[in-house]
């Protein structure tokens, strides 16, 4: 008789548990889906929906950069290339090249933490697909310009361009055929 009561208990248990399982999935059927239909069916651009401190493609505001190269030294995979030369006439240090290889970058953020003038920062941009991997070497210096002087203690920090505006422009420019700096490895 013991095994028969077990038999009935099996039936009862399976009915209750199967029913509750069905209730769980049915409750999911009645809820809103989580899916974000990237890229074309979002309320606003996905870039605008990212969390505040998300790490996207790096950018440098060269009007603030002092050419100290701390970021390049910090970088564990050497994806930042900086060239600073001394101008013989004006005796000024001139920023000749500031390239970031986004293809190599692993978005660790060490360079951003190290930057003493907060010129280097992560943007929210992430849509940087290119037909050629070398095109992801972003050049932030068009023509050599003197490096910025670090602000004095009582001076206010210099104005920087809005976050993301520089990278957006660069990425957009890559696709313009007339751009002389676009395309090909350096």
């Amino acid at each position: 008789m013991g095994s028969f009561s077990e038999y009935l208990a099996n039936i009862g248990r399976s009915i209750v548990t199967l029913g509750d399982g069905l209730a769980v999935t049915f409750s999911y059927l009645l809820r809103k889906p989580f899916t974000i239909q990237y890229p074309d069916r979002t309320e606003k651009p996905v870039v605008a929906m990212l969390p505040e401190r998300s790490r996207g493609i790096l950018e440098i505001d060269i009007n603030v950069c002092t050419g100290c190269s701390i970021c390049a030294k910090q970088c564990p995979i050497d994806c930042i290339h900086i060239e600073v030369v001394k101008d013989e006439e004006t005796k000024q240090r001139v920023l000749k090249r500031f390239d970031i290889d986004v293809a190599k970058c692993m978005f660790c953020g060490l360079c951003v933490e190290a930057c003493p003038v907060s010129g280097l920062r992560h943007t929210h941009e992430f849509e940087g697909s290119m037909s050629d991997v070398h095109r992801l070497m972003l050049s932030f210096v068009d023509k050599p310009q003197p490096v910025a002087k670090p602000a004095k203690k009582d001076e206010p920090a210099p104005e920087t361009k809005p976050v993301g505006s520089i990278v957006r422009k660069l990425l957009a420019d890559w696709w313009k055929p007339a751009n002389p700096t676009s395309g090909g490895p350096r």
Binding site: R31, P33, Q37, T42, E43, M49
Partner: peptide, 17 residues
């Protein structure tokens, strides 16, 4: 703590964030 959403045919892209 969810609410019902009976719009079964909806594409579900509104108001996620």
């Amino acid at each position: 703590g969810d609410r019902l959403d009976l719009n079964v045919l909806a594409r579900g892209q509104k108001g996620r964030f």
